[in-house]
Write a protein that binds this DNA or RNA. Structure first.
Length: 207
DNA sequence: TGATAGATCGGCT
DNA sequence: GCCGATCTATCAG
């Protein structure tokens, strides 16, 4: 049975935590099934970052982001989707890491049922798909990932520097120049391929 | 295979 | 009122 990472893992700058989360295991232990997957994509957000919810200070919604590291920040968006973040840094600092994609390893059938799709690549590829596959919603906002809950991150195997891809974050309108998205290069469970300059018309056929 | 519109509602101005 | 850290179906080619 995997064990949760300690609070000190999260109590570091979001940029450091985001990169270090790659290759770690996102675990949910439900009575009927254990959900397990490798984190393959995430993004860092900070208080001094105009794309971050915490940029405008503490509100009812963003309160969790300013709290203790190692807790879960879940928000609702576009009228239908939930996304989940792990809170990072010192208490009082509004920083977090958005979990964007996971390579599912265990509990795929349970995820398929929730998602309504069969293709393993579509289960947890993208932040809203990920929360749906893991059954994470509003009720999970603020829960502690370090102790006392069925949802946590365990050590897994961190990936080597050579396999880490970096890019601007996805779906934001400001601060688009900051390369604060981290992913495992070449992994098909990543939500968007690295944007290759002048790459087009390749990758034909179906392997 | 790639681009675009539609869904749908909470949080903030 | 407006717009968003998104996903999916649909249409054009």
């Amino acid at each position: 049975m995997p064990r949760p990472l300690s609070r000190s893992f999260y109590a570091r700058p979001s940029l450091v935590v985001a990169r270090d989360l790659l290759g770690r295991l996102l675990v949910r232990t439900l009575p009927e099934v254990t959900l397990l997957g490798r984190i393959v994509e995430c993004e860092a957000y900070r208080e001094d970052d105009s794309a971050s919810h915490s940029y405008r200070g503490v509100t009812d919604r963003t309160e969790v982001m300013f709290g203790k590291a190692g807790r879960l920040y879940v928000y609702f968006t576009y009228g239908m989707h939930y996304c989940m973040n792990v809170v990072t840094g010192a208490e009082g600092e509004g920083s977090a890491v958005l979990l964007r994609a996971v390579e599912p390893l265990e509990g795929l059938d349970w995820m398929r049922e929730r998602r309504g799709v069969a293709d393993a690549r579509l289960l947890c590829r993208g932040p809203a798909r990920l929360t749906q596959a893991y059954g994470v919603g509003r009720a999970d906002n603020g829960i502690d990932l370090v102790e006392g809950n069925d949802l946590f991150v365990s050590a897994g195997r961190p990936i080597a520097d050579g396999s880490v891809g970096v890019s601007p974050r996805v779906g934001i309108r400001t601060a688009t120049e900051l390369p604060w998205r981290f992913f495992e290069a070449g992994n098909p469970f990543v939500s968007r391929p690295a944007k290759l300059p002048a790459a087009s018309g390749r990758r034909r056929g179906r392997g």
